[in-house]
Amino acid sequence: MTVSFAQIRESKPGVFDDGCSTRVVLDHIMSKWGVLVLSALSEGTLRWGELRRSVEGISEKMLASTLRTLADDGLVHRESFPAVPPHVEYSLTPLGRDLMERMLPLVGWVADNSDRMLERS
């Protein structure tokens, strides 16, 4: 059963209104880098360098910022191991895995349709 945007708004008055927390969360998870980082982590636990290579084109600063935001939102788990050099691993939390089960079909749709959408006549 498909739920409409109107039904969602009707069931939760004020949701998606200006100033609503839903807008902040949408900004975090639907940003270009947010989607790509979450998608990369849907494959499993990754170290910093692996994640950076997986999300081609992301700067170290943007990766750090995106990971911090997604961790603060409870979607990404950061585990630091006492070692030299530092060893840090990133993975999705249960909430992050739940999100990606829903978002990966959209990511697949974008992969299937982006070229056609951007074709120039």
Score class of each variant (00 low, 15 high):
2 T>K: 03
4 S>C: 03
5 F>G: 04
5 F>N: 08
6 A>P: 01
7 Q>W: 04
8 I>Y: 02
10 E>R: 07
11 S>E: 08
11 S>D: 07
12 K>V: 13
15 V>C: 04
15 V>Q: 01
15 V>R: 04
15 V>G: 02
17 D>T: 14
18 D>A: 10
19 G>R: 07
21 S>P: 05
23 R>A: 11
27 D>Y: 10
28 H>K: 08
29 I>Q: 06
29 I>M: 07
30 M>S: 13
30 M>T: 15
30 M>D: 06
30 M>Q: 13
30 M>H: 09
31 S>A: 11
32 K>C: 12
33 W>G: 04
34 G>N: 04
41 L>D: 02
42 S>Q: 07
42 S>I: 09
45 T>W: 11
45 T>S: 15
45 T>D: 11
51 L>P: 01
53 R>P: 06
56 E>G: 09
56 E>R: 15
63 L>N: 00
67 L>H: 00
70 L>D: 00
74 G>K: 01
74 G>D: 02
78 R>W: 03
81 F>P: 01
82 P>G: 09
83 A>C: 09
84 V>E: 15
86 P>G: 04
88 V>S: 06
89 E>K: 12
90 Y>M: 03
90 Y>C: 02
93 T>C: 06
93 T>F: 06
97 R>Q: 05
102 R>M: 04
104 L>E: 15
106 L>G: 06
106 L>I: 11
107 V>Q: 10
110 V>F: 13
110 V>E: 12
111 A>N: 15
112 D>N: 12
114 S>L: 15
114 S>E: 14
117 M>E: 13
118 L>T: 14
